[in-house]
Amino acid sequence: MAYRVFKLKSEMSETEIFERIKGGDEKALELIYKKYYRMMTKLVITNSGTEDEARDVYQDALVVFWQKSRSGNLVMTSKMSTYIYSICQNLWRKELDRKKRLSSEEKDSSVSMDFDKPEREKIIAKCLEQLGETCRKVLMYYYFDEMSMQDIADKLGFANTDTAKTKKYKCKQKLDELVKAQYSEQDFLD
């Protein structure tokens, strides 16, 4: 048990970790994932959640945290853990609400409106797979991580921002074509 204590001491400071996350260092995200795992999952477990749900909520919260810090709009006014904790709280509250709604919907036997959304996401995920590693990374970094063209070029080893821009444009075009083809195929089948 004592080991955990001294492991923390040899780790980086909070600000250092946060700076690395802002810089897009996924290893730093893994680090805080480990560091706060017990603390964050406990929140859900002690609030009528299972261990699996706790892990799920915590991982989702960190993904939210990652995106927020990456976009550069996040200013840390409190401790990083406090901030992540509040995201966990919100997500778990939402999940509990959803569960409650779901059980009352079952009684009303109404159907969810958002039925085809996961289906569409699946199609796009499949098309992304077909694109290949570099294209996929460019698009994800651009749209999700909201990285600048300079950062994308640095991270993926492109010569300059123009290369990154061209890559992004071409990859997006290719993805659009693939998705359109898939969509029309689906419509055709329906």
Binding site: E26, L29, Y33, K34, E121, I124, A125, Y143, F144, L175
Partner: peptide
């Protein structure tokens, strides 16, 4: 849809990465 799909795929990827971290 497409942009949402890209975002979702990236979130899934990050989650899978975290899931592989041994805790």
């Amino acid at each position: 849809n497409i942009i949402q799909g890209i975002k979702k795929a990236r979130a899934v990827e990050l989650k899978a990465m975290l899931n592989n971290v041994p805790v």
